[in-house]
């Protein structure tokens, strides 16, 4: 997605308490990364590693430095500083730069926005917005449901019953995030979050009925706007002779946008209730998160029993009585 200064203003003007110091200047310039730079050193003359393509934030330090310079020094400073192409300049705390600063910015068609926020608060708020826009995104054909607070992503071929499963779960009090098309954003190195497409919202298509609105039918408690994806549930047509996981001791993992999450393959056959299985998948996942791996504990206990029995047998065999 293209992010221009104008779009940033339209989206977040109030939240970031922005006020344009040069109305309309540089609004069409594009921001192409989510990073912020404090240009103190560049203003002072050290421009070797000046990260000029980032959003430049001027705080108290930068502005009082500029105010300490006389006209000749300012010209010297700005002719060098403005020779770099910058997407956007922000001045925090409602401060005003020297008039010359705005002259140079206008000549270079670079937007200058003022905010009433402190530098730290501004950077925190704008970073969240920028990270969200520049975060890696993908769409997946599947359904995302919050089951007991765990985000289950259902995937599988069309007609396998993803929507029906979602409907069943909603009926049992779980919350639908998205059906059919899930928009996935990588929000942090290990976090992927799913959302519905804006146009589709919480609508769903059920074969034989058509398009239904889950929020209207089941109420606000049946939906969720976004949810972290924690487990992928792959629905497959049950095949005679195919082998399915019977122990659950191997942790199968899949990767979405470079984030690894566990997956389970669930064979489905007509009339099979995957709702209860889904609830168990969620609860089992929670147990694992809290450090309890049932399958592994069970297997360990079995091995211990076998080992103990061996020692008893050895003892009995060696017993001369």
């Amino acid at each position: 997605m293209k992010l221009t200064v104008g779009k940033l203003l339209a989206d977040r003007r109030d939240f970031l308490e922005l006020f344009p110091l040069l109305d309309g200047v540089g609004y069409d310039k594009e921001l192409n990364n989510s990073q912020i730079h404090r240009p103190g050193l560049a203003l002072a003359g050290y421009t070797d590693r000046f990260a000029h393509k980032r959003t430049q934030v001027f705080g108290q330090t930068e502005i009082s430095y500029l105010n300490s310079l006389d006209d000749v020094q300012l010209d010297d400073c700005f002719s060098r500083f403005f020779s770099f192409e910058m997407p956007l300049m922000i001045i925090t705390k409602g401060l005003l730069p020297p008039a010359k600063f705005l002259e140079y910015a206008r000549k270079n068609q670079t937007a200058v926005l003022q905010t009433n926020l402190s530098t730290l608060e501004f950077i925190t708020r704008v970073s969240a917005y920028l990270h969200n826009i520049f975060a890696p995104q993908t769409t997946i054909h599947g359904s995302l449901i919050d089951v007991y607070g765990v985000g289950l992503l259902y995937t599988g071929k069309s007609g396998i019953g993803k929507s029906e499963c979602a409907l069943d779960l909603v009926e049992r009090g779980h919350r639908l995030v998205a059906d059919d098309v899930v928009k996935i954003t990588k929000k942090a190195p290990e976090v992927i979050v799913g959302q519905p497409d804006e146009k589709l919202g919480h609508h769903m298509e059920v074969r034989g009925i058509g398009i239904i609105d889950i929020e209207k039918l089941f109420g606000i408690r049946a939906i969720r706007v976004q949810k972290r994806i924690e487990v992928e549930v792959r629905l497959e047509r049950w095949e005679e002779g195919k082998e399915y996981d019977r122990l659950g001791i191997d942790d199968n993992r899949t990767s979405i946008l470079g984030v690894e999450i566990p997956y389970v393959v669930i064979p489905v056959s007509p009339g099979k209730n995957i709702t209860v299985i889904s609830e168990v998948i969620s609860m089992n996942h929670m147990l694992k998160v809290y450090g309890e791996n049932t399958a592994q504990r069970f297997i360990r206990k079995l091995s211990d029993d076998i080992a103990r029995r061996n020692t008893t047998l050895n003892y009995l065999e060696a017993d001369m009585e």
Binding site: G159, D180, K199, H203, E205, I211
Partner: peptide
């Protein structure tokens, strides 16, 4: 850059 499954009606409609 939008990809949808042609067997999914919601997906196809999402293309608008």
């Amino acid at each position: 850059n939008l990809e949808v499954n042609a067997k999914s009606i919601m997906g196809v409609m999402m293309l608008a």
